[in-house]
């Protein structure tokens, strides 16, 4: 399944946040979106997931959803968004309960996704008993349970320390290698972007426009070992971002 954003423009109270953004997320592709703070990345992702209506432009899906997909467009949130009153398995169960799945089958799905995210031992734990990294793994398990076609990830690793982030990145790469999900991955962290993205879309400062697109053909699984080759790419993206940040800075001092 493909996600197409066509000429998305959006305003909040007279202030333009997104300006004419078009992009495509192809089947099995991870598209990373980077950009300065406040340029509208989260807004773009909300529009892509149908949680918000753009003022102009359209978010479109093309192609059939994969067999058995309960929620083709599935989010992973920066703050995990787990229900604190439900256990790990209860949180996964939540997203299956509305689909009329028999209890036994639901149990099987829950056991399967918890096993895939190495959480089987924590099925009965409450979110407050888990570390940040484990909470995000629960959120990933919950997303997997509905068999998504496209994952929408808004800075999923930003709330985690760098070691945990590294581990979860490996998990995501392993997962992608197995399941070839597509994803739209918003991040501040350029290292994450070059490790996970087959394409990196750099947005300008507000109003967010597409400033540059960087393609990376290196297979995801090899990237951890070939970090040195990614370094120049990361540097290039960083240069663009720095320019934007500097210009944003100058703009504010002009107003003052």
């Amino acid at each position: 399944m493909q996600l197409l954003l066509r000429n998305i423009t959006h305003h909040y109270g007279g202030r333009t946040v997104l300006d004419d953004i078009s992009l495509t997320v192809d089947d099995g592709e991870i598209v990373c979106i980077v950009g300065p703070s406040g340029c509208g990345k989260s807004t773009l992702l909300r529009i892509a997931g149908g949680l918000e209506k753009p003022d102009q432009g359209q978010a479109l899906l093309s192609g059939p959803a994969p067999e058995g997909s309960l929620n083709p467009l599935t989010y992973i949130f920066q703050d995990f968004a787990l229900l604190p009153w439900r256990s790990v398995e209860g949180n996964v169960s939540l997203v299956l309960e509305d689909h009329g799945i028999a209890a036994a089958e639901r149990k099987a799905i829950i056991a399967d996704v918890l096993a895939r995210t190495n959480l089987s031992d924590f099925a009965k734990a409450l979110p407050r008993q888990l570390s940040g990294g484990m909470k995000q793994r629960v959120a990933i398990a919950r997303a997997l349970a509905v068999k998504p076609a496209i994952m929408l990830m808004d800075e999923p690793l930003s709330a985690l320390d760098s070691q945990t982030r590294e581990l979860l990145m490996d998990d995501l790469v392993a997962l992608w290698t197995r399941e070839r999900f597509s994803a739209c991955y918003v991040t501040h962290n350029l290292n994450e972007a070059v490790r996970l993205g087959s394409r990196i879309i750099v947005l300008s400062r507000r109003p967010g426009r597409i400033r540059d697109v960087v393609e990376i053909d290196m297979p995801l699984a090899e990237r951890a070992d070939r970090l040195a080759e990614l370094e120049p790419l990361q540097r290039r993206v960083w240069e663009i971002m720095r320019e934007e940040a500097r210009e944003a800075d100058r703009e504010i001092s002009d107003v003052a």
Binding site: G49, L51, L70, N71, L73, T74, Y75, F77, D79, A81, L83, W85, L94, V95, E97, D98, R142, V146, L152
Partner: peptide, 24 residues
């Protein structure tokens, strides 16, 4: 609000969101 948005993003019905997220 983020929990409610999470419920919507997984396509939970309105009643489910009220029963399972808002009331607890």
């Amino acid at each position: 609000r983020n929990l409610i948005r999470m419920g919507q993003s997984f396509g939970l019905s309105w009643l489910s969101i009220v029963r399972k997220i808002i009331v607890p």
